[in-house]
Design a protein around this nucleic acid. Structure first.
Lengths: 101, 101
DNA sequence: TTGACTTATCAACATTTCTTGATATAATAG
DNA sequence: CTATTATATCAAGAAATGTTGATAAGTCAA
């Protein structure tokens, strides 16, 4: 069972929302800095994209994975993050159910 | 145009989410403490329902109205709050569009 | 092994959000 | 009018969240 409040909190930071939007474009993929032709984005890409330092990216990715919005997969020395579409869909579905529309 | 991040933030507090759920049941109405047979809930009802002090309720209702999730209508010395279903629907629609589902 | 590279975690600090009690504003009833 | 009731706002403090730099842990290549 998903936690709507927790997911809302994860979505409520502008940077995190931008990261999620970035991950949409890395669904099934083009070229990546770390590893071409693989789904997902690594920490280093997100740093580059938004000009953020590494610990800040790690912090926000932990929030996103903790809410179930992102899944992570280690590949060598990188960790690749992908959108969890199921959680996003379930989130909107649950809100519709809660508010009866 | 709705602000998904702002609405997410409004939804991200457990008490606010409970208040919104309470308002679902006051859509088109039964009896109210302040004024029977009217849509919406007043500040005083929310205080009673959740055992919150008045300023705390005011604070959270302002967050909810500020995000467009709730509309307010003064009636005499009361203010009645109602769910804004349009915003909720538009919120879930926008997320679906952003994440392409 | 060492050295380079990537990510995680920590402590300290900054910022934001939340809560409270006091006070102000506004409407109603008498 | 005054007294009562309902809500808004404010300042102060508490709690939660976000940011940073340093350090730790892990992987890889040579």
């Amino acid at each position: 069972m998903i936690d709507v409040v927790k997911i809302s909190k994860a979505l409520s930071d502008p940077i995190r929302y931008k990261i999620l939007l970035m991950l949409v474009d890395h669904q099934s993929n083009e070229l990546l800095c770390c590893s071409p032709a693989l789904e997902g984005a690594c920490n280093c890409e997100i740093m580059a994209e938004f000009g953020m330092i590494q610990s800040r990216v790690s912090y926000h990715m932990k929030e996103l994975t903790g809410a179930g919005l992102v899944t992570e997969e280690p590949r060598g020395k990188w960790k690749f993050y992908s959108l969890n579409m199921d959680t996003l869909k379930e989130y909107t579905r649950q809100i519709g159910a809660d508010f009866k529309f």
